[in-house]
Amino acid sequence: MAKKELIKLKINGKEREAAAEPRLLLVHFIREALGLTGTHVGCDTSNCGACTVIMNGKTVKSCTVFAVQADGAEVMTVEGLLQNGALHPLQEGFKEEHGLQCGFCTPGMLMSTYALLQKNPQPSEEQIRWGISGNLCRCTGYQNIVKAVQFASKKMAQGGK
């Protein structure tokens, strides 16, 4: 067994650290070492996007990054969306517009669309669809997910953060 490396990172604003073998994937580190189970493992083959997190401001598939690579990074997961107990406009949008059924893809969808709205607060429908092109949903269909993002975009423009 290769020696463990100490990994320190800032996740959802908090400094955390844990030791891990270099081969440990970031998604397992987040779920098992840090106990944040909001991030899901779907395909484990870099296809579905359920494991999407934001690393240093960019969305990545955490099943295709080693935890050691995130040493020193700032990471945001779906748990980071809730602010003082209030749902983020995107979370509200998914709820109001029926943007989920089983909810398995939702954490990844939320991270991809959060990053999209940070970069482009008023995306067109086409831009939203390209923005979630690395995230698969097996039950809702994309129509309501697009609506959920439009809901959030509107709400955030009105000062809802």
Partner: peptide, 9 residues
């Protein structure tokens, strides 16, 4: 190439 998350890395 691939999708947005993959292109970020």
């Amino acid at each position: 190439i691939a999708d947005p998350q993959v292109r970020n890395l």
